[in-house]
């Protein structure tokens, strides 16, 4: 891909609407050979970006989902003990053939040692995502999802892989990447990532899309939904995001909602439809209450967008009496 616009068009073909900023960052990451670190609230399409990019660049997608306690054996490689054991069992006869004619124990051990490459070969190596990305014959894209959930030690281990794109397996030697994989790391920012990791990446913060961009996404992903309804839906979601909610509705939830509206054959977003489907957008009980109360107010006009009044709602509700104290 030779220009930013080309990146953008390719992503659009994969049904991913990229802003100029996203396209520029991907373009640069490709040119500089650096991993992309995408941060932002949950559900704005960070993972989707990785998938779309893989498809756009026609690369195989290799995904590594991070979680607490993830370690090298799950991320890099593992010896397949069971298979080794099975082979030893099945080859027992061959082994005794091999060892016939040896006089002493040490002679037998020497002869066996000559064959040990059989048991520590790539045949018995179970490649995990990182090794697969490095070892792959075809160019690949490595998506390391939710890196902030892994432990700090794993992050440090990852540094080595990401800077040199090589991995050493003590029994076999060093594997060097045949093709430099593209790397996308995503983070929901639940903890601070280390400076060292950030330094090695190009960084992008993906925020909730603007109303226009979100409408385009809805129109693209749920094309059957009536355009006027889609517009109304997006406006409502954008209003919800301005409220002081525990969890704001994400883009994926907007899409779920749009699909729900389509299935319910809604003509317009009236009170009843909203009551029935609000839980698709808002997932906390207290948020549902707050959203209802907020949406009951007349929609703010576009001019006084800033002074919505809804933002002040949070503390107001909190000041409503808490359970009586029992002395």
């Amino acid at each position: 891909m030779n220009s930013v616009n080309e990146v953008k068009d390719c992503l659009a073909e994969q049904q991913y609407i990229a802003t100029d900023e996203i396209a520029t960052v991907l373009f640069l990451a490709d040119k500089l050979g650096k991993p992309v670190l995408a941060e932002g609230p949950a559900g704005v399409g960070k993972t989707e970006l990785g998938k779309a990019w893989a498809a756009a660049a026609e690369r195989e997608l290799i995904r590594l989902q991070c979680y607490e306690g993830l370690d090298e054996t799950k991320a890099l490689y593992e010896w397949e003990y069971a298979k080794q054991l099975l082979y030893t069992q099945l080859l027992r006869d061959k082994l005794s053939d091999l060892l016939t004619g040896t006089q002493t124990l040490s002679q037998a051990a020497d002869r066996l040692a000559g064959e040990e490459d059989v048991f520590f070969s790539e045949r018995f190596l179970l490649p995990r995502p990182l090794l697969r990305a490095i070892h792959s014959d075809k160019p690949s894209l490595l998506l390391i999802d939710e890196i902030d959930r892994s432990d700090a030690e794993f992050e440090a281990f990852l540094l080595e892989v990401l800077s040199d794109f090589q991995v050493s397996v003590p029994e076999l030697g060093t594997f060097k990447a045949k093709h430099h994989p593209l790397v996308v790391l995503t983070s929901n920012n639940t903890r601070e990532l280390s400076e060292a990791l950030k330094r090695r990446c190009v960084y992008i913060y993906i925020d909730y899309p603007t109303a226009d961009a979100e409408l385009r996404i809805v129109r693209l992903k749920v094309p059957d939904l009536n355009p006027a309804l889609a517009k109304q839906a997006v406006e409502l979601v954008q209003r919800l995001r301005r409220m002081d909610l525990k969890k704001q509705p994400s883009v994926s939830e907007t899409l779920d909602w749009a699909k729900a509206l389509l299935l319910l054959n809604a003509k317009s977003i009236d009170r009843q439809t909203l009551e029935r489907t609000l839980t698709v957008l808002v997932k906390h009980e207290s948020d549902v209450m707050r959203a209802r109360r907020g949406l009951d107010r007349p929609a703010p006009s576009v001019e006084d967008d800033e002074d919505d009044g809804l933002d002040d709602l949070g503390p107001a509700i909190r000041r409503i009496p808490y359970p009586p104290r029992n002395k």
């Binding site: 100029d20 900023e21 520029t24 640069l28 950030k198 990446c201 190009v202 960084y203």
Partner: peptide
């Protein structure tokens, strides 16, 4: 890589490499 003709692209290029 980006050149300096497109101000926005130039700005994004610096931002993504410097601001983490």
């Amino acid at each position: 890589h980006m050149g300096v003709t497109d101000r926005n692209a130039f700005k994004t290029a610096l931002k993504t490499t410097l601001i983490k």
